[in-house]
Design a protein around this nucleic acid. Structure first.
Lengths: 229, 229
DNA sequence: TTGCTTTTTTGATCTGGGTCAAAGATTTTA
DNA sequence: TAAAATCTTTGACCCAGATCAAAAAAGCAA
């Protein structure tokens, strides 16, 4: 397994001298989790951070009554649980493998030492956290100011962008998980998908979505509700 | 005005050598804004970050239709707009003075250079961004999984903690702003305050709140709705 | 294949909190 | 101090989306 090569591709480690990279690669442990397994729990003590190697991890919050909000779905090359490395020492959310997953684990101290030695890692990390803050601010806005169809449409457009503007989207996750990711209930999502299909805005085949009318999708994302009345 | 002394008290600059601190103090510009004045707009180009000296600044998002979500109310010693320094170069939200306000402004380049020279500033900054991420994750959970009375109660308990557990709270901001901070409409907030007063959970006198029944407040914060039925 | 589990859809109903409108209170300004 | 502007409360009504229940579809194991 070529850990070093993998690490060198990560934006987080860009610009790091090979030697530092080698040290990090040595220190990083591989952990494997099966589908459904918990990686850590909200409030648990965090001793380092993770990078997904293969598989998929959901980062989520649970309310006392057991309702769930998914903050992120992390895939290969994504890192998570940086926060407790730098502040507070306990995890700010739960993490669970939604597929069989392998992750790299970097112990806090190793990372902190590298950061102290090499400002470029600090800068990369600051950029990464900043990007996430930006994303959260947007998510919060969406959650409190936009309705569910709008959030769903925005999500589709986002997926499409990630696939170079393709009209063929692969959700790649269960619908229930998608619902929780956009802050809705499974039943609501199902109804909205049905309505959007009926209106020929999208076509749904299992986990495959085809965008039929990008203009209308954009309108809905921007808050237009006329299509639903 | 003793900029250096002020700066040396900030958690962000803790551990910085006096010389670096002096350099930063020299570079930092003071800007003043009147109540209601815009400091920057979402999407505008960001050339540095700010620390509140006196006054109060609201950081907020606006939906296309003009609905507002307040992300933060920043007071003296709080810093804001770090994100565009490290990533993306444009502001992720709007900022407006809600009182007559003086802020210190640190140009991006000065900050980046100090960070490159001194890892302790990088570490402080990473800790600050991490703390904010943690806060955002909590806010997102509250926004999507909790109801308005619960968010309001949590806010009161939070204020109380900041005042060493006192039962006498000073909102210090307009009710409309508070509403927008907890993701509600002014009218809803008003009704909930009325109901909580009627139930003798709190007492409201203008911007002063007195907690009468902390137990019930905690119950509501935890999601209990029996008090409202 | 068959049966069992999990996921998704559909139907019926309920409700928290938003909207619109107007009155009342407080603050600001002249 | 008056009057103008802004902020807050209250009332009537409405609706997006949650909940509860059950059927249908899709995955999966034996």
């Amino acid at each position: 397994m070529d850990k070093i090569q993998f690490l060198s591709r990560l934006p987080l480690f860009r610009g790091l001298p090979d030697e530092e990279l080698r040290t990090l690669a040595e220190i990083a442990g591989v952990k494997t989790y099966r589908r459904g397994e918990t990686i850590f729990l909200d409030g648990g003590e965090g001793h380092g951070f993770y990078v997904v190697f293969t598989g998929k991890v959901k980062i989520y919050k649970l309310s006392p009554e057991g309702r769930e909000l998914v903050l992120h779905i992390m895939g290969p090359e994504d890192s998570f649980a940086e926060v407790p490395v730098f502040e507070g020492r306990h995890y700010p959310a739960n993490a669970e493998a939604v597929e069989d997953t392998r992750v790299l684990f970097f112990p806090r101290e190793a990372l902190l030492q590298t950061i102290r030695r090499d400002p470029s890692l600090a800068m990369n990390m600051l950029a990464a956290l900043s990007a996430r803050l930006r994303e959260f601010a947007q998510r919060m806005e969406d959650l409190s100011l936009k309705d569910v169809p709008s959030r769903l449409s925005a999500y589709f457009l986002h997926l499409s962008e990630q696939e170079q503007g393709s009209d063929e989207l692969d959700l790649d996750i269960k619908k229930g998980l998608l619902a929780s990711l956009i802050g809705a209930k499974q039943e609501s999502l199902s109804r909205i998908l049905a309505k959007m299909s009926e209106r020929r805005i999208i076509e749904v085949k299992g986990k495959k979505i085809r965008i039929l009318d990008r203009q209308k999708l954009k309108k809905i994302a921007a808050g237009d509700r006329t299509l639903f009345n």
